[in-house]
Structures are given as C-alpha cells and as structure tokens.
C-alpha cells in the first residue's frame, strides 16, 4: 500500500520545471529531452485509468469517469509500495457522488505550485495559441474545462479546471497525510536551491547540497531552452511555438493592457494578496 504526492497547479505555473528538477534531485538523473520524461505523469492519464480499471474510458461519460477516478487512485496505491508522484491540473473537487476526486486516504501530500496569474495569462495564451482576452475569460470561468470529452477524444481524461482563484484555494486545503506545501514560481526562480530543499524535506528525501546544486544547474531555464532547441519537447502542444518560452517574472507588464490587468486583479485580487502578488 502506498499513496500519492500530487504536484498540483494551474497550467503554466512551473509544474513541468518541478517534474524535471525532482528526478534530477532524487535519482541524479540528467534532464534528457531526447527521451520521454516519465516522472510524475499526469493524474488524468487515460492509458493508466483504462489499464487499472480494465475498462475503455472512451465509452464512459465524463460523469462516469469522475465517479470512478477515486477507485482508480485507490487501486494504484494498493499496487505500489513507494510513494507515487502525479502532476495534476484538475481542480481539487468532488465527484458527482460527493466524494473527493483525490481521496484523502491515499494522499501523502500536495505540492501546490502557484504563479502570478498575470504572468500565467501571458504564458497560457502562448501555450494554447489563443488571444489573451480569451485566456483571461477562461481564468475567470468557474466552469472551465481544460480537457473535455464531448465531441472528440483526447489522450487525457476530462479535466475540470475552473477559475484560477478557486483552483489555488481548492488545492491549498486539500486533505491528506500532510498539509499542502505552497511553492511559488517566483521563489523557485529567485532561489531554486532553497525551494528544492523545502520540497525534498516535505516528501521525505534526504538531499545533499551537491545533489541540490546539480538539480538546479540541470534545470536552469537557459539549459531547458537549449535542450528544447536541440531535441524539441514532447509535451509542447501543436499551437505553441515552444514550451520553454521566457519564464520571466513580471513579463505581464509588457504584454497586458491596463484593462486586462484590471480584469485579472478584480477577479483574483483576494487570492493574489494572500500569495503576495498584490
């Protein structure tokens, strides 16, 4: 019997950096973009769900899939001895049966990665190839679905994302064996070593200073950009020019109009203040 550490974030908040840095830290692995990264695969993997549940989720409705996902995580935890790491973009929430989508009984902990929503908007717009106004509307929409299963079948299961503030608030109180650990993108950039040390302590890894520095060096933004130039990055969506674009803090100042900034701040001011962004 094991359980999960959820690497939970709204998209474009630094989750992928963490998924590259943690194996570099824990297993001393080099970051290799010529291979598929297998650390912390997405929790909403269709392939895994279908295998564990012995069912074709393509024949299930989104509600039926949501009903069954807690059973999938329980069954996976039952099969494993070591902690399981999973990336999550779903909002923390309840299934149609009223139970948590991510059961507390198999939650070892949650690493909640956040980023200034004004920078998220710019990055997300490039990622999806959408206009910024459309992205801001999505970030303000409590009903927003990141992946749906209405008119097409995606490689991932349907995922409810909801609005940005609700997403952060939900994961910051996710129940489990440990209270969630908040990690800010901006802090990871300012002092990656310090943040990795915090995360290693949270998940129970002993990490030497040397291992920490190796992981930090292997996942510097310029190193990741160069690796993407060389090999491409398999998680880049078709609409995006590149996955590792700028990684800038405060880039929104040059990219958003005053009206767009106002729209984000008025919708999410409360949570932005709580996280130190306002």
């Amino acid at each position: 019997m094991s359980g999960f550490f959820w690497l939970a974030s709204y998209p474009k908040s630094g989750n992928t950096w963490l998924r590259l840095a943690l194996p570099a830290l824990g297993q001393g692995k080099k970051v290799d973009f010529s291979a598929v990264s297998d650390f912390a695969p997405i929790a909403a993997s269709r392939v895994v769900f279908d295998r564990v549940m012995a069912i074709e989720s393509s024949d299930l409705t989104p509600d039926e899939i949501a009903l069954l996902r807690p059973r999938c995580y329980e069954a996976l935890a039952e099969l494993e001895q070591k902690p399981l790491f999973r990336k999550v973009h779903d909002a923390w929430g309840l299934t149609p049966a009223g139970e948590p989508l991510f059961p507390a009984s198999v939650t070892l902990g949650t690493i909640c990665v956040v980023r200034d929503p004004r920078d998220v908007a710019v990055s997300f717009a490039h990622h999806l190839g959408h206009g910024i106004d459309r992205i801001i509307a999505q970030m303000n929409d409590r009903q927003f679905q990141l992946v749906s299963q209405q008119t097409r079948l995606a490689e991932q299961l349907p995922q409810h994302l909801g609005d940005w503030s609700g997403h952060v608030a939900g994961w910051l109180t996710a129940p489990g064996a440990r209270a969630p650990l908040l990690v800010r993108y901006e802090d990871m950039q300012a002092d990656a070593a310090r943040e990795l040390r915090r995360i290693a302590a949270y998940v129970g890894w002993s990490a030497t200073d040397e291992a920490i520095m190796r992981a930090v060096d292997a996942t510097r933004f310029d190193v990741l950009r160069a690796a993407e130039n060389e090999h491409g990055f398999r998680e880049r969506p078709g609409a995006a020019q590149r996955f590792f674009r700028q990684g800038r803090i405060g880039g929104w100042r040059d990219a958003l109009t005053a009206v767009q900034v106002e729209s984000i701040e008025s919708a999410h001011g409360g949570m932005m203040r709580r996280l130190g962004y306002l």
Partner: peptide, 12 residues
C-alpha cells in the same frame, strides 16, 4: 461476486 478470484479490479 465470483468465487476464487485470479484478478480483482474495481470493475472486473
């Protein structure tokens, strides 16, 4: 349920 299981999943 079936007796004497060789596989027991959430649905199968």
């Amino acid at each position: 349920s079936l007796p004497d299981l060789s596989f027991s999943g959430p649905l199968l």
